[in-house]
Design a protein around this nucleic acid. Structure first.
Lengths: 191, 191
DNA sequence: ACAAGTATACCGTCTGGACGGTACAGTACC
DNA sequence: GGTACTGTACCGTCCAGACGGTATACTTGT
């Protein structure tokens, strides 16, 4: 289907497209603008990604895989109860790429927002969320506690994305502590 | 700027546009499609809303006002601590228009997703969120508890909107109970 | 009372630009 | 001689917005 990021130029195109999407949103991502951003011709883009949709799809895929990797890393293969829930919480509250604009997080939202026209493009993201939710429910703590943590984390993401009353750094730390306390309580209370 | 919904036809256009957006997303809202849906000509639309952006903007405004009214109604002017937080929680978990697909909630998300191209259109929504967040922080309970509730509610909204591992009705009730318990604990523990 | 003028509420066509995608000829490197 | 492009030219579609027109109601001067 698409040569994608297997090649050097393909990866550069993808990265440039991501920059563009983060800066201006998916709706402003055109083949021409992406070509310009990547320093490549339009033909060059279509050589690597057979259509605009394929390009967007590759971005979604990459985003999902990246967050997934973050989760795995944080969990560090711990099997303790609540480990996955904690990883999810921390991955959202203290993103890896803290520097300034938190590229990855913003990208996800821009993508999320931009692909509503074509539900097919959201499919990989939907599938991952289902997987994560399932993992949360099997995390050795009550499912409703894990779900509360997940929803709050997702809510934080939402507020960051669209800048809907974003939570300040201090408040964020307090909220994080509150959720961790909830988590600890659930761990020590389990039967 | 726009005659808007002050007239009968203006309101009909707005309602028709909302239906269209809920069904197909903002990207599919064109002047032509809206005209057809409303049983009005394209010129007729532009008479009431001077541009497509004005139409979308009116929808955002209406959505925000509607949710706001829901909050006020649920709060019923109670001044008890946690009243606003509880109202926010319940407005999200048990939407007024329960029937089927919950029109209002879906509309908000479709709008949210669709207006990323023009950040200006989100402004009224941003302002409201700031107001609500401020109210939550002044609700007579610790701000971090109120914020956790808000974030979880927003997270639920997000998951519904994009169908990202949506929470089942039973799980939703349990999560709601969990958050209410957190709220009650905060109320009884306040100094 | 009645013509003339004016404002309101639309209708429907046209245009110009943006964009996705195609086609293809050419280039440079390995 | 194939792989990896560049560059240009072009097609078809979609769509916002402009614009000229129309029908009806309401006002105003006489």
């Amino acid at each position: 289907m698409s040569r994608g990021e297997s090649s050097e130029t393909g990866a550069r195109i993808l990265a440039a497209a991501e920059d563009l999407v983060i800066r201006e949103g998916v709706s402003r991502l055109t083949l021409d603008s992406a070509a310009q951003e990547a320093g490549v011709s339009k033909g060059g883009i279509l050589y690597h990604f057979p259509s605009r949709a394929a390009l967007v799809s590759a971005m979604v895929e990459r985003f999902v895989v990246s967050f997934e990797a973050d989760l795995v890393e944080r969990q560090a293969y711990s099997k303790e109860p609540g480990a996955f829930t904690r990883a999810y919480l921390e991955a959202t509250f203290d993103p890896r790429e803290a520097p300034a604009d938190c590229r990855e997080i913003r990208l996800g939202g821009a993508l999320l927002a931009g692909v509503t026209s074509d539900p097919e493009l959201l499919k990989p993201m939907r599938e991952r969320f289902e997987t994560w939710q399932a993992a949360l429910e099997q995390d050795g703590i009550p499912a409703e506690v894990a779900t509360v943590v997940r929803l709050a984390a997702d809510g934080l993401w939402l507020s960051d994305l669209f800048e809907l009353a974003p939570v300040s750094a201090e408040a964020r730390a307090e909220v994080r502590a509150q959720l961790l306390a909830l988590l600890e309580r659930a761990i020590s209370n389990r039967s």
